[in-house]
Design a protein around this nucleic acid. Structure first.
Lengths: 348, 348
DNA sequence: CTGAAAGCGCTTACAG
DNA sequence: CTGAAAGCGCTTACAG
């Protein structure tokens, strides 16, 4: 954002200024700026000097206009809160960087206008890729939320839990809906006699905390609580602890997503690992493909299957001879399985 | 990113297409697009219809070029991992939205080129605001990391702890440096006989975990551990738990930042609250000021003071008659003090 | 190797 | 109220 007219800030040098300074045409300046070969070394040097002197930087808008490409991608997320989106953005950022694409980030905050605009992009022929969305027939990337939820419930049942309560996500959220559906279906299939109990949350730790307090004080405390995401599971863990209930001794708690913190919470959280960073990277790849592909292909990638990560909150203690019936991956922080790989955070 | 030439994707409608379709000049189209008054209702309606038909959307690059403003701001962060940056981005996004600014996000990944480019922006007269940086004499926004660290050490000493170990952040990080300096100075001032013990971390949970394991098995276990950020404090908590050590009974642990999860971890983490979201918002405000102000003002905002949040990890139990000697804020999840306000996460 | 010129898609005085 | 035209800062055939 620049407003040279309304301020006394000096107007940035343009290609014309450089051309004048080096006594050449703008065409030559453009050539050296873009690293074309056909410029005499002497001319090139002269131009380079002026560029440096004037601190010339090509105007991005002009370039985008003439080249018909902005080298940027837009990312519209419903929200920016929490470990899930944080990791997703990391993945997207990394891929954007690899492709030398600028990242335009914004969150819809549930704003109807913004969402409508995004939907319009769908019908206008703007390259788009949806993630975990109801929209079909378009490039999209999805997590098998339904299958993951079923697997989690199956695991809990396998561990001997009979009464399993589900803390669901927001009613209008597609991921939340699919996870809840998986919970209901698996429960109905495996334990036809026990009926599902669902308490509605909103994916926040606070919601999980509130749900946990309610469940613990209810007349019939469940044997296990399956939260629709790790944030709520962590809130739930905190609630039980605050009430003097021990997890997993008194009841089990599991989550979904496997955010980085899931392994560091006490007890370590059993959860379904969603390859979040890869999801972000994959979305960018698909977008790049959609952009560069002549005819929009309708290759629909199959949903990514989450994997069960058995830690301690579900009632399994990771002893040396861990006895996980399902043979699933059991990770502990010190094994580094859940810690970010190859990264050195720079944040306070 | 669009490459109409190299693909068979239909070229988006331009203002010329609309003008032709409505049998008017491009000037008139521009007028209705920009909501100018001087267009006859009939003409306006005709143009509007064509705009709709053609799904015309003004080309952003062309607009930016002619208006000399891009309506966007760039945010360069060293990293994108964890609760701190997550909240910071939320704050920045919210403010950008309020100012109707597009957010260009990227992380330097420690890339020297990228950082050098940012530094060059400093000397070129591009409006810039630095956050928690060594750079001085420019619009900047900072946290009083030094003072915060001193306050935390003072609190720990007040609670009776004598041997306090500091888990520091990365050696080349300014925040980390200031926090460590605060730790050393306060310790030297209050307890001249005990010498500081610092173990180096990198702000990740994994680093905190590793440090915790080391400290616990060392010959002289400290009475308290003050981690330079919440992530490491949480890792440390996990390490102690895995070793059968109870916090705060066996030793105290405190963090810095007060990320959203700090209140939900067990035991709830005592920490220095940094107004992260406000920091992000403030940076955007300052930037907007820098952009719109005729002559760059050198008003340097004083550093924001973090506030001590006493929870349980430091040895204070929040009983009904909480006996916090310092009279500090004690928060618990159910009081909502640490839960995000007015937000409904949409993330799984 | 170098330059004059057209043109990318818009906005905005300036006339009428 | 409406349009012709200039111009924002670039890139790229096209000549020479």
């Amino acid at each position: 954002m620049t407003k040279p007219r309304s301020t006394s800030r000096p107007r940035p040098a343009t290609i014309t200024d450089v051309a004048r300074g080096a006594r050449v045409s703008v065409a030559s300046v453009s050539r050296v700026v873009n690293g074309h070969a056909n410029v005499l070394p002497a001319t090139r040097a002269r131009i380079a000097r002026v560029i440096e002197q004037l601190r010339y930087v090509p105007n991005t808008a002009a370039r985008s206009l003439i080249r018909q490409q902005t080298h940027s991608i837009g990312v519209l997320l419903p929200d920016l809160y929490g470990g899930f989106f944080s990791e997703l953005i990391r993945g997207i950022d990394g891929a954007a960087r690899d492709h030398k694409l600028q990242l335009l980030l914004s969150s819809s905050h549930g704003d109807a206008h913004e969402i409508a605009a995004a939907m319009r992009a769908l019908v206008a022929d703007v390259p788009t890729v949806f993630m975990n969305s109801r929209v079909t027939g378009r490039p999209a990337l999805a997590i098998d939320n339904y299958g993951g939820a079923r697997a989690m419930v199956r695991h809990l049942i396998g561990r001997g839990h009979r009464t399993i309560t589900h803390i669901a996500g927001p009613a209008d959220n597609f991921d939340a809906h699919e996870r809840e559906r998986g919970y209901r279906d698996e429960l109905a299939a495996a334990l036809p006699r026990v009926k599902p109990v669902v308490v509605r949350g909103d994916f926040s730790e606070a919601a999980g905390y509130a749900a946990g307090r309610t469940l613990a004080s209810g007349k019939r405390r469940p044997a296990a609580v399956f939260a629709a995401n790790d944030g709520m599971a962590i809130g739930c863990l905190a609630a039980f602890d605050s009430l003097g209930l021990a997890v997993p001794r008194d009841l089990a708690v599991t989550g979904f997503d496997d955010i980085p913190l899931a392994a560091y919470v006490r007890p370590p959280l059993t959860t379904m690992r969603v390859p979040i960073v890869e999801l972000g990277r994959g979305a960018v790849s698909q977008l790049v493909t959609a952009i560069t592909t002549p005819t929009p292909t309708r290759t629909l990638t199959p949903p990514l299957a989450p994997t069960l990560i058995v830690r301690e909150s579900c009632g399994i203690h990771n002893s040396v001879e861990g006895h996980d019936a399902g043979g699933h991956d059991a990770s502990q922080p010190q094994h580094g399985i859940s810690r970010p790989r190859n990264r050195k955070p720079r944040t306070p």
